Lab assay of single mutants.
Amino acid sequence: MFYPNSPQTSPQLTQIPYGQQYAMMQRQIQQPYHPFATTEPQARLYPYHYQGPIQQEQGGFITQQSTAASPQYVQMRVTPVDQSIMSGYPNQTANGSSSSSFNYNIHPQQQQQQQQQQQQLRHHAMPVGSVPLQDDRYRKQLIVNYLAPDVTSTDLHELFSRFGELDGARIIYDKQTNMSKGYGFVYFCHAEDAKEAVERMSGYEFHGKWLKVGYSTNPLNIVPSNSSPYVHAGSRGAAG
């Protein structure tokens, strides 16, 4: 039997160049792979992502010199942007860049009308829970959420009447099932009393439920100042 490094198959040491006398086997001759043993700084910083320098080929596509990437890492192929796409944008300079302001050559009167329309939209648009300043009635009506099913309009009136005089209180019921929808409205005579009720009743436990109280901004629920107070009856038909 002959071994790869046996004296019968191995040459004389004098015939082997210096430095390879003890590297006779194939696994010894093959050098191990060192990912950080390279002179390129990109490979030292990113050993798993770097795959060699990027070269520009004919046709405008950018390719990489090395083989496919590892399945664990996804390499994105980048193509140059066609400058003709950006030619339609206004205020574009000769080098292809555009300024931040756009001039669509709008007539001054049209621009003024658009600004007025935007101001009107901001004036009428009102986020949930906010209180408008032009109508004091919005500051007097509250919406009470997360009410228990057994709470009546009379219970709601008695709960909030300790903060001040009320114009009314009612629970909203479903017309088909005649069941409470879980929320109601309270109408105060003074805005200061309503503000105190919002601050003190939010998070209050009532009939096993934690109440959420806020201003009601729905104009359909506003009680006119010259109208008669609501009837605080315990029956659902009268309260709904």
Rank of each mutant, 00 (worst) to 15 (best):
S180I: 04
K195S: 06
Q114V: 13
A23R: 01
Y215F: 08
Q134W: 03
Y50A: 15
A233S: 02
Q65S: 06
I62W: 15
G164K: 06
T93Q: 06
Q8P: 07
P11R: 01
T217E: 04
Y48R: 00
L156G: 05
M24F: 15
Y33R: 00
V78S: 07
S225M: 14
P132S: 08
Q176G: 06
T217P: 03
Y204P: 04
H34W: 15
G168I: 02
H34D: 15
E158Q: 05
L13F: 06
H49L: 06
R236K: 10
Q28S: 14
Q120D: 05
H123F: 15
S228W: 09
I222Y: 06
E196M: 05
R200I: 13
E57L: 13
R77M: 15
R27G: 09
A37S: 08
F188I: 02
I143D: 08
L13G: 09
Q83K: 09
G182D: 06
E199F: 00
T9L: 12
Q42T: 07
H157M: 15
E205Q: 15
T177L: 04
P90A: 12
A191M: 04
Q117F: 10
S130R: 08
F160R: 07
Q116P: 07
D167F: 12
Q58E: 07
M76P: 07
S99C: 08
S180D: 07
Q56D: 01
Y89A: 07
A43P: 01
F160S: 08
T177R: 03
S99I: 03
R139P: 02
D136W: 00
Q28K: 07
T217W: 01
A169F: 13
P35M: 14
Q118R: 04
D82Q: 12
Q28W: 15
D135L: 00
A197H: 04
G52E: 11
E199I: 07
Q75G: 07
G96P: 12
G88Q: 02
Y46T: 01
F102I: 02
H34P: 14
Q176C: 10
Y46Q: 11
L147T: 05
P90I: 03
A194S: 10
L147Q: 14
R122Y: 14
T38E: 15
V223R: 04
T152N: 11
Q120T: 10
K212D: 02
G203V: 02
S180Q: 07
S84Y: 12
G237I: 07
Y204E: 07
E196T: 03
R44K: 06
T79P: 01
R139C: 14
A125Q: 07
V78I: 13
Q119N: 04
T39P: 06
D150M: 03
H49R: 01
R200V: 09
Q120A: 02
E40N: 03
S100Y: 15
G52P: 08
A37D: 10
A94I: 09
A37P: 06
Q8Y: 06
T9W: 15
Q134A: 07
A69Q: 11
T9E: 01
Q56R: 03
Q114E: 04
V131T: 10
Y104I: 02
Q8A: 06
G203T: 04
A238F: 00
K212T: 08
R170M: 06
P132W: 13
Y230N: 01
P47M: 14
N95T: 07
R236W: 11
I106Y: 07
T63Q: 13
R162M: 02
P71W: 14
Q114S: 07
S153P: 03
Q58Y: 00
V186A: 03
Q176N: 01
G208S: 04
R27S: 12
S153A: 08
K140I: 01
L45P: 01
T177F: 00
H107S: 01
V231T: 00
Y33A: 03
A238Q: 14
F61T: 06
I143E: 00
Q114K: 14
P127A: 14
N178H: 05
K209Y: 01
Q51F: 12
A197N: 01
P41Y: 07
P41T: 09
Q12V: 04
R236Q: 03
Q64S: 08
Q72L: 14
G214D: 03
T63M: 14
A94E: 13
V144H: 15
V213W: 15
H157Q: 15
S87W: 15
S202W: 06
R137I: 09
P149I: 00
L133R: 01
T154A: 08
Y183E: 12
I29E: 13
G52N: 04
I172Q: 04
A169K: 11
H190Q: 13
Q112S: 09
S10H: 12
S180W: 05
A238S: 02
T14R: 14
S225F: 10
G129T: 05
L156I: 04
F61G: 04
D82W: 10
Y18K: 01
T67D: 02
S97A: 04
I172E: 03
E165Y: 13
S66T: 12
R170I: 14
Y73R: 03
P17Q: 11
V223Y: 13
S70Y: 14
R200W: 00
S6P: 02
F61K: 10
Q58P: 14
S97P: 04
V151G: 11
I62R: 03
G184T: 07
A23Y: 08
Q112D: 03
Q65D: 15
Q55C: 05
S216D: 07
D155M: 15
Y138M: 03
Q118H: 13
S202Y: 05
S202P: 13
I172D: 10
F61Y: 05
Q113C: 10
K209C: 06
F102T: 02
R139V: 00
Q15W: 04
Y89N: 03
A43V: 11
I54S: 09
P47T: 13
A37L: 15
P224R: 06
Q8C: 03
Q51W: 13
M201V: 07
I16C: 14
Q12M: 15
M76E: 05
T93L: 06
G88T: 08
T79Y: 14
P90K: 08
G182A: 05
S70A: 10
Q110L: 07
H123N: 15
T93A: 06
Q8I: 11
I222N: 07
H232D: 15
M179D: 07
G19N: 14
V74C: 15
Q83E: 01
H49V: 05
S235G: 07
G164W: 06
I143K: 05
G129Q: 12
G237C: 08
Q113N: 04
S66E: 12
Y138K: 01
Y215S: 02
A148I: 06
Q12H: 03
T177A: 04
Q115Y: 10
V151H: 11
Q58I: 15
S97K: 10
E205Y: 00
G208D: 03
S130H: 07
A94Y: 02
Y50K: 06
A125H: 07
H34G: 14
Y138L: 11
A148T: 04
L166V: 03
E158L: 08
E165R: 10
Q92A: 04
P127T: 07
S98G: 07
Q64W: 10
I171Q: 09
L220D: 02
S99H: 02
S100E: 06
Q21K: 00
R139K: 10
S101D: 13
N218Y: 02
R162D: 12
T14L: 13
T217Q: 06
S101G: 13
Q134S: 14
K209I: 12
I172N: 06
S130D: 10
D82F: 02
Q8H: 10
S10T: 02
V78Y: 14
G214L: 05
M24G: 09
Y183N: 12
R162H: 07
A23Q: 04
A191F: 04
S6K: 01
A191V: 07
I222S: 11
L156D: 06
S153F: 00
S87G: 07
P219K: 04
H34L: 13
A233P: 13
S180L: 07
P35I: 08
E192P: 10
Y215E: 05
L45F: 00
V74S: 07
T9Y: 14
K181T: 03
Q83S: 06
N221V: 06
V78L: 12
Q116D: 01
